[in-house]
């Protein structure tokens, strides 16, 4: 009977969707292993989030309320998470496979001589009680099963949307404050400011259930207004192919593909995207793929669940009209 730590990724006082998904996964893992699910919240906001974390499976909540968690780059969070490991005696960590959380996991893994598996799409308890993680490699062409060597801490990075977030009505978690002391190195790299970009109402493509993506076939920057219009109608995030971001039609951080983001939404709708291998490497694990492209030979149609061969400037406005009508 130990504790299973879940590092909560959050935007200010709001846990990200992936954090609630991880808690739900942790809850079923803990039921199999007999562990307690302990969430770890670094930075202000733990009190406000406690109820939501508890209802998704957190029985305990380690928190460090200091602004330093966000005021300096990575290292204060590494120190605080290390304290959480020491306090709890935990062996296992689930963390969100996001950019900055991977840095926290990598650094702490070096300190604790842990093993790390990132971007797991499934996690189970194996016969020996150790975790077994499934992940997709080579842009989703291959599926692998991995574990961490015996005797080492297990750090498992969980991919967004790998698990459903289930509100199982759990009560408030037991709150435990972490006593963290930072050395000079931890505060050597300062966060001077935070620049937020884009619509805060639109979900991030990494965790959106639906992603609407546009490519070279849009022909120009204003094509993305159409993509955004469709996206906002169905609550989707907006992505782009590299051809579109390189042309300057949409910011690079929305680029889906081998040099950009990897996404696995429930539904991907690509317009004017041919589906070159470099793009497919970032999206072919999407559960359902819709393609709208005027070239019937475009490779995207080979992986499409539903494809429309046609002019996207005719099809997409009509689709918006149809969907609006059905929404009433």
């Amino acid at each position: 009977m130990g504790e299973l730590l879940v590092l909560i990724d959050h935007s200010e006082s709001e846990p990200r969707k992936v954090s609630l998904q991880m808690l739900s996964a942790a809850k079923s893992l803990a039921e199999a292993s007999g562990d307690t699910v302990a969430a770890v919240w670094l930075g202000p906001g733990a009190d406000a989030a406690a109820a939501a974390l508890g209802s998704h499976g957190a029985q305990k909540l380690y928190h460090w309320d200091s602004e330093d968690a966000l005021g300096y780059v990575t290292l204060p969070q590494v120190s605080a998470l290390q304290v959480a490991f020491e306090t709890s005696g935990a062996d296992t960590l689930l963390f969100a496979s996001g950019n900055h959380t991977k840095d926290v996991a990598a650094r702490l893994a070096i300190r604790l001589d842990a093993g790390v598996i990132t971007d797991a799409t499934d996690v189970e308890v194996g016969d020996d009680g150790r975790l077994v993680a499934t992940k997709e490699v080579f842009g989703g062409e291959m599926i692998t099963t991995s574990k961490i060597a015996d005797g080492k801490h297990q750090f498992i990075g969980v991919a967004a949307n790998a698990f459903p977030a289930e509100d199982t009505g759990g009560g408030a978690p037991e709150l435990v404050a972490l006593d963290v002391t930072l050395d000079d190195a931890a505060t050597a790299s300062k966060v001077v400011s935070v620049e937020k970009q884009g619509s805060s109402d639109r979900p991030d493509i990494g965790e959106a259930a639906v992603v609407v993506a546009g490519g070279r076939g849009l022909g120009n920057e204003s094509g993305f207004e159409l993509m955004e219009q469709l996206a906002d109608l169905i609550g989707a995030g907006v992505g782009a192919s590299r051809a579109a971001t390189d042309a300057g039609w949409y910011p690079h951080r929305y680029q889906v593909g081998q040099t950009g983001r990897t996404i696995s939404p429930t539904l991907y709708i690509g317009s004017g995207i041919s589906g070159a291998i470099q793009h497919r490497a970032g999206m072919q694990t999407s559960q359902n793929i819709v393609a709208i492209n005027k070239d019937a030979e475009a490779p995207i149609f080979q992986i499409a669940d539903f494809g429309v061969v046609g002019d996207l400037y005719k099809v997409v406005p009509k689709l918006i009209e149809e969907l609006e009508a059905r929404k009433g």
Binding site: A188, Q197, S200, D204
Partner: peptide, 12 residues
């Protein structure tokens, strides 16, 4: 430093 919502300006 790029992240999901934009970027952090950091100094070291």
């Amino acid at each position: 430093r790029e992240h999901e919502e934009g970027w952090d300006v950091v100094e070291s």
